[in-house]
């Protein structure tokens, strides 16, 4: 168990009659970049909420950083980072205030926080913008900053929910270089995206369809298994069969 970042066994979550996550099992290795794909409504968000300790599963087992999602939610929250496209930073605070705020939440000592702040400014290339409000930054910078903040407390695992939506192609790649670096430093990356070429940047990719994980392999392995040229093709084949039939068979 200690060398796995995430373990899920028959993980299930129901909302009334609706099964959002249906007997899902998978492991994520430490330091791995794990792509978590799925159509809208396939159950990705629910699964992420369970793994980040925000939602209790209905049945099944799950361990995040070796901690039980049923009983050790509070500890889980300390050992993970989270960033989403929709919410991450406070627009009406400056860059420095945001960093200080999140550092404060995770109880970072003042001296370390100062050092980290300088590091982030250097990495993201913010320079003078550090005292500007986040609202005035371009989206790409915001997202890079948000990512830096989400790993401020050196978590074991960081969950990224569509971190690059709408970001320009060049900044998107800079963002991924930051992900690679974090992964080199031993942080496990759990990432969702709608850009399917980004799926190929991951070490392994899972594809969720109707609450289940229908495929899980390296990008090369998936393409081989499905005899496809790209992950997009694999995804479309799995996520909506009838669309694929229409486009590629007829």
């Amino acid at each position: 168990m200690p060398d796995k970042a995430i373990i899920a066994e028959n993980l299930t979550r129901k909302f009334g009659d609706f099964t959002a996550v249906d007997q899902v099992s998978f492991d994520v290795e430490k330091g791995e970049i794990f792509g978590f794909l799925g159509a809208n409504g396939a159950g990705k968000t629910t699964a992420i909420r369970i793994l980040t300790g925000l939602l209790a599963p209905t049945s099944g087992k799950a361990f995040v950083a070796g901690l039980n999602v049923y009983t050790e939610m509070e500890k889980i929250k300390k050992s993970i980072g989270y960033m989403s496209q929709k919410f991450s930073l406070y627009d009406d605070l400056t860059v420095r205030e945001n960093i200080r705020f999140y550092g404060g939440i995770y109880g970072l000592p003042r001296s370390i926080l100062k050092q980290k702040t300088d590091e982030i400014i250097e990495i993201v290339g913010l320079g003078d913008a550090v005292n500007k409000r986040v609202a005035s930054l371009p989206l790409g910078w915001k997202q890079k900053l948000a990512f830096s903040v989400s790993i401020l407390h050196n978590p074991d695992i960081v969950f990224l929910d569509e971190p690059t939506s709408g970001v320009d192609p060049i900044t998107r790649r800079q963002f991924w270089e930051m992900i690679y670096e974090a992964s080199e430093n031993g942080i496990t990356i759990f990432v969702t995206t709608h850009y399917l070429d980004e799926a190929e940047y991951c070490d392994r990719v899972s594809i969720m369809v109707d609450g289940r994980i229908d495929a899980l392999d390296t990008p090369a392995g998936l393409k081989k298994t499905f005899n496809a040229d790209s992950i997009e093709e694999v995804f479309i084949r799995l996520a909506r069969k009838e669309v694929w039939d229409e486009r590629y068979q007829s």
Binding site: A39, N40, E162, G166, H194, I236
Partner: peptide
């Protein structure tokens, strides 16, 4: 198509 999954995007463009 922003925020819409790849399959729905393909359908939309179709």
């Amino acid at each position: 198509t922003t925020g819409v999954d790849a399959v729905s995007r393909v359908e939309f463009w179709d």
